[in-house]
């Protein structure tokens, strides 16, 4: 029923909550809510809420990148966030979300991984864990905001005798960019951003676009069961680049 209503409204050029098509819901970012983590943040877009925590551990570098730290992104769709989420290992949607955030962070080169070596054979491993607290639509954009917000307040732990000394820090994580993800949705031949829960069900296809501070695109992923026309992509990129500046303001 809700779905039909959302669809009828979109056809008339309106949205359920009266927003403009290119308008996000209210965005809020809380930095550092979890002191146990080396960095943390809770991002909310409307009622959607995602916590990101950064934990840093010591480990061996990958053989093909001996002088670089390691970035690992995980996502958990906790059952607290939606009646549709089940406890257990992450499903394909959680895995896809984590991997898109991972690619956005990695390909934007926002973290200077080459500054994360600790000794000859030890590097810092940066774990970014995304924990969905409330799913009310547009989890991906919210998760990417939470991840970068958490990274922006992440401190590097002190290492003593080859071990991390928890609670003592030597400096900040070297973060040189703040990439954001803007998911541009297509419904009824119109483009919109930040779908609410009801709208998400009527969106035919979605192009999630990772945008760096300098406007470079670092990741894209088409989602949804619909298709895109070739001429759509340029328009979706323009909208994503435009909105990315606005989202990044919340990370300042």
């Amino acid at each position: 029923m809700q779905e039909k209503y959302a669809l009828e409204l979109l056809e008339m050029g309106k949205r359920v909550d009266g927003r403009k098509f290119e308008e996000y819901r209210e965005i809020k970012i809380e930095k550092g809510p979890v002191q146990k983590a080396e960095g943390s943040a809770i991002a909310s877009i409307g009622k959607t809420k995602v916590a990101a925590g950064v934990k840093i551990e010591l480990g061996e570098p990958f053989p093909d990148a001996p002088n670089e730290g390691i970035l690992i992104v995980n996502c958990e769709f906790s059952p607290v966030a939606s009646p549709e989420f089940e406890a257990g290992p992450p499903g394909e949607d959680a895995i896809e979300l984590a991997r898109i955030v991972d690619r956005t962070l990695r390909e934007s080169k926002c973290i200077q991984l080459d500054k994360l070596t600790v000794s000859q054979d030890k590097v810092f491993i940066v774990f970014v864990d995304l924990h969905v607290l409330n799913d009310h639509g547009n989890l991906l954009d919210t998760s990417a905001l939470a991840a970068v917000a958490a990274l922006s307040v992440t401190r590097l732990p002190k290492v003593e005798d080859g071990q991390i000394k928890r609670g003592e820090y030597t400096g900040n994580l070297p973060l040189v960019y703040k990439p954001v993800v803007v998911s541009v949705c297509k419904a009824c031949s119109k483009f919109l951003v930040d779908p609410d829960l009801e709208e998400e069900d009527v969106v035919e296809s979605k192009l999630s676009i990772g945008v760096r501070d300098d406007g470079k695109i670092c990741a894209m992923q088409k989602q949804g069961t619909g298709t895109l026309k070739f001429e759509d992509v340029g328009k979706m990129l323009d909208l994503a680049i435009l909105k990315s500046k606005e989202l990044r303001n919340f990370l300042a």
Binding site: R212, I217, M220, K222, L228, K229, F230, V233
Partner: peptide, 23 residues
């Protein structure tokens, strides 16, 4: 039908490069 059903990208590109690659 001239419709895209999969589009994934990673790396570092600007809009014009993406449109050229799409072609």
């Amino acid at each position: 039908k001239n419709e895209i059903t999969l589009l994934q990208m990673d790396g570092e590109l600007d809009k014009e490069e993406i449109l050229t690659l799409l072609n």
